[in-house]
Computed example of a mutant assay.
Amino acid sequence: MSGAVVPTIGCGAAGRVAPLQGELTLSFLNRLAARYHLTIRDLLAAVTDVGGLQNLTGMLYPDSEIHLNAQARNRVATLCRVAPHVLERALPAWTREEPCGKYGDGPVGRLTRGEEAVAAWGPACPACAAARTGRRTPARRYLAPEERVCARHQFWLLYVPGTSGLPVPLGRCPEVIEAQQRHVRLLRRSPTGAQAFEVARAVTGFWWESWPDEEELWPDRLEATRADGADANRWKVSARDLITYPETIAIAQVLASPHWQQQTIAEARGHLPYRLGEMPALLDELARQLQRPWVARHLATVTRGPLFVWAHACVRTRLAPRSTARHALWQVHSSHRPRSLSDFLDVQGSRDEAGLPAPQPVKRLRGNSLQAERAFDKGLAHARLYHQQHG
């Protein structure tokens, strides 16, 4: 199929195909191709055709996104019968980049892949998409953290590397829907709500790596949301953000509270804390909000991790009340950020019945070496021993 037939296709019976707000460009093209009874490869060939050659770079995967130059965008606008300014307003990646082609001038497309290469996205709620488009063709949308839940139809919109995403029913987890409502209120009422969420997500991600024996809610939530045919180990890796979401919001509400920031500073009594146990009121509040009485006891001995770093930075805002100190309060060190799911899942490997990739050995962070990690652990052990012996 050549680009010369694009006007002919546009005059066919498919009619107007409108984008969803926040939709990935490639998702929109998938739906457009379906309306013309074409494969996505056929449509891309038409949109990027230059003298019979396909001016397209990159590989096509279920989790890909595409960037188009102005000429290719004009062809798409002709096909879907939607004004370019409407497409630009609805599709975040529509004019994000002007890719260069392999064959000189003409329409160009460039495929990219992965959450890091594009932005955070997930599947569109299937019920919302069907109501909006009148069809049950799957779609993908860019999603802010508070948009991961469709409260109306009770879905968690899960990003899974190497797939087009997975809508997860939440009928057995009303606490997740309630948490999303509290998340929205937090963002509306607190100027630091979004930053507090990122710190809280790092905290729950840190806890996720090793659950204490007392933890009961997360295993129950894992089982309640696991799809039929989904391997338990694969689901545990894929569903991290879903399972920890209510706790993430509870922690974010505490961290964003000016009262608890001041309480943390007051409990420090003018010196930087050595362990979280030096701030018992904060730990008791976290335990109460998380509905886990044992949390305070577990956190009391903590001397590292994102929550400890936040408490440390909070005290420093009083000791050095400058804008840089306030900014540091919401910084999440790269070593504390939750690892990308693509680090844990083999997107090229086999899938279970639910379409989930298999777990793989965790990739080492760039710049980290096993020798450096062992040296750090050894030094930390020496420091703790010295503290026990000499105070």
Results as ranks from 00 to 15, higher is better:
Glu88Pro: 03
Arg140Ala: 09
Gly106Ile: 06
Pro107Asn: 10
Arg132Pro: 01
Glu115Gln: 11
Glu115Lys: 09
Arg132Asp: 11
Glu146Ser: 09
Pro126Arg: 02
Arg113Leu: 15
Gln154Ser: 12
His153Lys: 07
Arg140Asn: 06
Ala124Tyr: 00
Trp121Thr: 02
Cys100Pro: 12
Tyr103Trp: 14
Leu157Cys: 01
Ala130Met: 13
Arg152Ala: 14
Gln154Leu: 10
Phe155Gly: 00
Thr163Tyr: 03
Glu98Met: 10
Ala139Leu: 05
Thr133Gln: 09
Gln154Val: 09
Gly106Lys: 01
Arg140Tyr: 05
Cys125Trp: 00
Glu115His: 09
Pro161Asn: 08
Tyr103Ser: 04
Ala139Glu: 08
His153Val: 06
Arg96Asp: 13
Ala129Pro: 02
Ala151Leu: 01
Tyr159Leu: 05
Cys125Thr: 00
Glu146Cys: 08
Tyr103Leu: 10
Arg110Phe: 10
Thr112Cys: 11
Arg135Thr: 15
Tyr159Asn: 08
Ala131Gln: 15
Cys150Leu: 01
Pro161Lys: 02
Ala90Leu: 07
Glu88Asp: 13
Leu157Thr: 00
Val108Cys: 13
Cys150Thr: 03
Glu146Arg: 09
Ala119His: 07
Arg152Gly: 12
Glu88Thr: 12
Pro126Leu: 07
Arg132Gln: 13
Thr95Arg: 15
Val108Arg: 02
Glu98Asp: 12
Gly106Gln: 04
Leu158Ala: 08
Glu116Met: 14
Ala130Pro: 03
Ala119Arg: 07
Arg152Val: 11
Gly134Val: 07
